[in-house]
Amino acid sequence: MNWNELNTLTQLEKIREESKENPVVIFKHSTRCSTSRMVLDRLERNWKPEELGHVKAYFLDLISYREVSNQIAEQFEIEHESPQVLIISQGKAVYDRSHMGIDYNQLKDELKN
């Protein structure tokens, strides 16, 4: 899986714009949480570029970039969780799941809609 690092506030406006063409995924990861590591590993093992090649995926280390994580919660009007996956489409968060609710097949189905 090819992640795009998310580490600046200015990237959030770019993500909003990108999402007007194709959906964008943001994965918020805590480097201090074993559940977050497990969910990340599971997502990366299952991600298939042939199924989701049209989707740009961003990775946020929320421990290192807490300000960006806080801005995501505010800007997209979602409660902060970790780990957390969001789908941004047409400039809005249209899907978010956290912890064991993060499932590749469900994410894939949402991205096909």
Rank of each mutant, 00 (worst) to 15 (best):
E81Y: 05
A73F: 08
G91A: 09
Q71T: 10
G53H: 13
I88W: 00
S82E: 12
R45Q: 10
R42V: 02
Y65W: 11
R97W: 00
S89K: 15
G53E: 10
M100P: 02
Q90E: 14
H54S: 13
V55C: 02
Y104H: 09
L43T: 00
Q106N: 07
N46L: 13
P83K: 05
K56A: 14
V68R: 02
L60T: 03
M100T: 11
D61L: 07
V85F: 00
R97D: 03
Y95M: 12
Q106M: 04
V94I: 15
S98I: 02
S82H: 11
E67D: 15
S64R: 15
V94T: 11
E110Y: 02
H54P: 06
E77F: 10
L86T: 01
R97C: 03
A57N: 08
D61Y: 06
P49E: 15
R45F: 05
W47N: 00
L86I: 09
L52P: 00
G53T: 13
F76N: 08
K92I: 05
E67S: 15
H80Q: 12
F76K: 10
Q90T: 10
E44C: 04
E50H: 13
E79A: 12
H80W: 15
A57V: 14
K56D: 09
L43F: 09
I88T: 03
P83A: 08
Y58A: 02
I72F: 08
L62P: 01
K108E: 12
G101F: 08
L52I: 01
Q71G: 06
R42S: 05
K48P: 00
G101S: 13
S98Q: 09
F76D: 09
M100K: 06
G101D: 13
K56F: 05
L60D: 00
I63Y: 06
K56Y: 07
L43M: 15
A93G: 07
V68T: 04
K56I: 11
D109Y: 07
K108M: 07
V68M: 07
A73G: 13
E44A: 02
V85T: 05
D41I: 08
Y104W: 12
G101M: 11
L62W: 01
K48N: 10
V85P: 01
Y58V: 06
R97H: 11
Q106A: 06
I88F: 00
E44L: 04
L107M: 03
G101K: 09
S89N: 15
Y65E: 15
G101E: 10
R45K: 14
F59G: 02
E79G: 11
Q71P: 01
Q84N: 10
Y65P: 03
D109V: 05
Q75K: 05
D61C: 10
Y95S: 04
Y58G: 04
E77G: 11
H54C: 07
F76W: 09
Q106T: 03
V68A: 04
Q75M: 12
L60I: 14
S98G: 15
D103Q: 04
D103N: 14
H99I: 12
E77A: 15
Y95Q: 07
E81I: 06
Q106H: 10
L62D: 00
N105F: 02
L86F: 08
A57Y: 03
I87S: 01
R97Q: 14
V55D: 00
Q75C: 07
P83Q: 11
N105I: 00
E81V: 04
K92T: 09
E110M: 08
N70D: 15
K108P: 00
Q71H: 15
N70E: 14
N105C: 04
D109G: 09
I87L: 10
K108D: 03
S82D: 08
